[in-house]
Amino acid sequence: MSVPPARRRATAEPAWLRHLLLAVGLGFLFFFLLLPLLAVFAEAFAAGGRAYLEALQDHDARSAITLTLLVAVLVLPLNICFGVAAAWAIAKFEFRGKSLLITLIDLPFAVSPVVVGLVFLLIFGAQGLFGPWLAANDIKVVFALPAIVLVTMFITLPFVARELIPLMQAQGREEEEAAVSLGASGWQMFRRVTLPNIRWGLLYGVILANARAMGEFGAVSVVSGHIRGETNTLPLHVEILYNEYNAVGAFASASVLALLALVTLVAKTVVEWRLRREVRMLSTALPSEHN
């Protein structure tokens, strides 16, 4: 969207207004984005590099990191399978109730994380629907890994599907139909045609889902039980240290999460760029005019 400056002149704001808007907009971003980001690292290193490293080598911090990674590793594959399946059905077929399904996929975005946590507590908790049965069989769900995984599945459910549905709709059915008419089996069609076509969109969704899976706080906090060294994910660990007035420890762990966020942003930007190129290819691959 670069318009040559000569063309812009007739419709540009006066210089003073342009500068004012720039100052206000960038100032807003400075105070609300950049400053917090810098503050995380400044606080983490407030007591020097050694204290920072020590905080990260703490046993509880490391087990929190491990648990956070484990949750992401367990949740993401399921989320990918769901996202691809839902997008395939929605983008390539017509059926009754399709728009309802799309709306329901959005639902986890709208529900408060605390409510999500409570919901699983009500089902699997001691007084919950399956609580007595689970207790009798000595299966731990709530205040243990299963519940953390379940709430994370709930929270991250829409990400991959939301990315893939518009992409696959834009790509249409014809390439897959061509593959089938050339004799490809369902799996060959999916692996050789569909998957390469959606790989960037899929990756984009996974990056977003991963960031959310690792960073989720509210829902996990309700069902985790905050057992140190066992059911504390990294965000919960941050909370505990902060509430104990261990600022360096809290911000050291927070800086790991902030780094994760920055990596996410970079990866997202790169993938977005590839994705845009793909979509541009799509628009040139499909001639717009035809009567």
């Binding site: 917090p36 960031a211 960073g215 509210g218 990294l234 965000p235 911000f251 999460l257 966020a261 942003l265």
Partner: peptide, 14 residues
Amino acid sequence: DLPFALPTAVAGIT
């Protein structure tokens, strides 16, 4: 997009 990527707990304490 930072607020999407940054865990809310980190945003909160910061």
